[in-house]
Computed example of a mutant assay.
Amino acid sequence: MPLDDASNELFMDRLEHSAPLFEGPPPQRKEISARHHHHRRRPWVVRHKAATVLLVLLALIAGTGIGLVLFIRSLLGGIEHLGDPFAGLGSRPPYATGAAGQPVTFLVLGSDSRIDSKDPSQWEVGAQRTDTIMVMQISGDRKRVNVMSIPRDSWVTIPANDVVDHDSRAKINAAYSWGGPTLLIRTVENVTGIHIDHFAIANFESFKTLTDELGGVDITLTQPLDLTGRQDAASSDNVLAPGAHRLTGEQALVYARERYTLPDGDFGRIKRQQNWMRSILKAAVDGGTLTDPVKLAGLVETVTKTVAVDDALTTSAMIDLASSMTGIRSSNVNFFQAPVQGISTSADGQSIVLLDAVTLAEVSRAFQTDSISQYVAEHPDKLNVLGGVVN
């Protein structure tokens, strides 16, 4: 959305003064960060460049529209809120605690469908399942972020609900289909033992548009990529050869959807999704997006169309959280997978993923004690950690 000179001037003026407009107490449900302090030396977005880029990304994978981003969202109509999916959950795992403060934990849903996640009314019982489920925690000292993907085919116990009136075994993504955000939160907390503070949902169409806003993302392919989406490079006439490429949004979406040709199947798909997110973050940092009003406006407009969050993630909570994350760098973000035993088949013939309950209990303790970064560093083999080379 191009801006004329007058709009640019107004935009930059608002950039300079956006932060103090959002000062306020944190949400009553949970204290999440220190107070925001106003600085007049340079625009907020420049002084908090790394934190802002990271949190723009997290706005897509976790709904945390922070600082300037939230200010622009308010001008464009505001981010959609889903109500309070935590009401009536009953017994829950305890809040995580850390020596330097409280971590903040999000349950993040990603959809590979065209459903507009901004409109909560589009959820219907039995109508949608989630393609991507992530637990994301910002550390208590606000210097690290850990993102754990839970395979969508994980075979778990889902509490009784309006569709199935008793506790039942099913794939974890059925929980959202059967009972929306509340049932999925309950299921994830029961399975992992991790207390969820906030909930957000987005879809991968938003990642495609954001990628194009950033001028593409740099991804190295280890095998040919069939750009038709048929996942049949041997007979396709539109193939990217292995090697380094700058992918468009559509190409990156094809890359992230691939699984049938990957050595690890859906596990490989999870890594590709994570790799795309990491590449978006890097592109935003290196491309000057945050200091270009036109680029930034387009990026934020994309975010506002495709993200919905819980009501407790208020404006003041978001700006407080962003203000406390000035020490975050892209290298401080870990992507990994919930520990699994392997793949099996359910009694009714479904292909399922069996979680490793023993290791998952260790991971849960690490999340609850704000030591998950240390655990990931010490046990990368248990968690399928995202590395530099992605198949």
Score class of each variant (00 low, 15 high):
385 V>Q: 05
240 L>S: 09
330 S>W: 02
273 Q>S: 10
64 T>L: 05
305 K>W: 01
216 G>W: 03
61 I>A: 12
243 G>A: 08
340 V>K: 01
178 W>P: 01
145 V>I: 10
24 G>L: 06
220 T>H: 07
287 G>W: 00
79 I>T: 05
357 A>V: 10
382 K>E: 13
280 I>N: 13
165 D>C: 06
136 M>L: 15
379 H>R: 10
209 T>L: 14
381 D>V: 04
236 S>L: 01
335 F>N: 08
116 D>R: 13
300 V>G: 01
324 S>R: 01
133 I>A: 02
55 L>A: 10
387 G>R: 00
378 E>K: 02
173 N>G: 11
108 V>Y: 01
201 I>A: 11
289 T>E: 05
338 A>L: 07
127 A>I: 05
181 P>E: 12
79 I>L: 15
391 N>Q: 13
118 K>D: 05
220 T>V: 13
388 G>S: 14
322 A>S: 02
299 L>F: 00
172 I>D: 09
34 A>C: 10
17 H>T: 15
44 W>S: 10
221 L>Q: 04
286 D>N: 08
349 G>T: 00
274 Q>M: 11
223 Q>W: 08
30 K>P: 02
27 P>Q: 03
201 I>E: 09
324 S>C: 07
57 L>P: 01
62 A>M: 03
193 G>I: 11
67 G>L: 10
111 S>P: 06
131 D>R: 02
259 R>S: 15
236 S>P: 03
162 D>M: 12
302 T>Q: 03
359 T>P: 04
60 L>E: 08
300 V>N: 00
206 S>M: 12
123 W>G: 15
103 P>K: 02
202 A>S: 15
358 V>F: 07
229 G>T: 03
93 P>V: 01
343 I>D: 08
35 R>D: 15
385 V>A: 09
328 I>A: 05
235 S>M: 07
93 P>L: 02
276 W>E: 12
311 D>W: 03
104 V>D: 05
175 A>S: 14
282 K>N: 13
244 A>N: 09
77 G>K: 01
321 L>T: 05
74 S>T: 11
284 A>W: 06
120 P>I: 14
127 A>K: 14
152 R>W: 01
137 Q>R: 08
97 T>A: 14
91 S>M: 09
350 Q>T: 11
41 R>L: 14
381 D>Q: 14
175 A>C: 14
313 L>P: 02
128 Q>V: 11
78 G>D: 06
321 L>W: 00
287 G>M: 08
109 L>H: 03
19 A>L: 12
315 T>S: 03
155 W>I: 13
102 Q>K: 03
281 L>T: 08
225 L>H: 05
229 G>C: 11
221 L>D: 04
32 I>T: 07
256 A>F: 05
20 P>R: 06
282 K>S: 15
189 E>F: 04
280 I>E: 13
176 Y>C: 14
135 V>S: 03
133 I>P: 03
104 V>I: 13
252 A>C: 04
358 V>M: 09
245 H>S: 13
299 L>Y: 00
214 L>C: 11
143 K>Q: 14
137 Q>L: 07
46 V>Y: 09
196 I>A: 07
77 G>T: 01
285 V>E: 15
45 V>K: 04
154 S>T: 08
338 A>V: 05
